[in-house]
Amino acid sequence: MDGAATGGDSGAMRAEGRWGIDLTMPQSLLLALHLRDAARLRPPTSPLLPDLPPLDPAAVPLPTAGGDLTGLEAAGRQWARWWAASFPGGADALTSILPPRFPGLAGMPELRGLAELGMDDAVTWSARAREVERRVLARTPTALFETNLVAEVEHELGRRIRPFQLGVVVLPVQGAHHWDVLGRPVISLGLRADRDGYLAWLRERLVRTGSTPRGRGERTEQP
């Protein structure tokens, strides 16, 4: 299901609702990234689309990958357009890329043709990626560490961090990386699997949040 929380230990609110961390691995983005890799697309990067590494586990190339270069260039541009319209994922984003209608690919004939060829493989691959995710979360639960980290940062600052809800997109790409996509944090599953690395990344965001004065009437927001 699109937007399912990665790890039940990280989706709940902490400290009587003052803050929360919700890590999600949206199904729509998994399917799209598999299509990118399987078709060997090279979409142009943008503030909404960083240069994301290849998937892990890797996608098996489509039989047509690397064939019609002109078509692949057009499909890469169309893919970037779909991503910009669909990020950070959700029910509508998932519906937009699914057969038989592929409503989000209207006016993108090259990309739709590839989706028709590769979507079954993408769905099968995403199930494997979810299993990897499940194993990662079983090995590295972080709820207690997150709670302790918030308390530690608040102690260092000498005050409470303003209330926040942090929605993090997790992607199963190679390596331990993080990005900021127009204010939305994105991390690799590899970073999530590295407890120390993940907590160091989270600490940096918490310190930045705690160092920003909260104005009168300010709403709860992402750090």
Rank of each mutant, 00 (worst) to 15 (best):
R216M: 14
L49Y: 13
D68W: 09
H155D: 08
T24W: 13
A59N: 04
E221P: 05
P100R: 07
M25T: 01
G158P: 06
R208Q: 01
V150F: 02
L62V: 01
L114R: 09
R192H: 06
R184L: 01
R42W: 02
P54V: 07
L191F: 14
P109G: 02
R160F: 00
V168E: 13
V169M: 14
A32N: 10
A5P: 00
R128I: 06
T142V: 11
D120F: 02
D37G: 10
F87H: 06
W19Q: 07
D92T: 03
T140G: 05
V132Y: 15
E110N: 12
L52T: 03
G17E: 05
T209G: 14
G217K: 12
G66K: 06
P185Y: 08
Q27D: 14
P213N: 15
R42S: 04
E218H: 08
R214P: 02
V186H: 04
A4E: 10
P103F: 10
G158N: 07
A176I: 12
R205Y: 11
I187D: 11
R18D: 02
G190I: 11
P141L: 15
P103I: 07
D120Y: 03
D22C: 08
T45I: 03
T95W: 15
T209C: 15
R162D: 00
A38Y: 00
E73P: 04
V153P: 03
E154W: 11
V153R: 08
E218Q: 07
P213K: 15
E146C: 00
R159Q: 11
W179N: 04
R184E: 05
G90F: 04
P100H: 08
S96E: 11
R112D: 06
R195S: 02
W201N: 02
L30S: 10
V153K: 09
S46P: 03
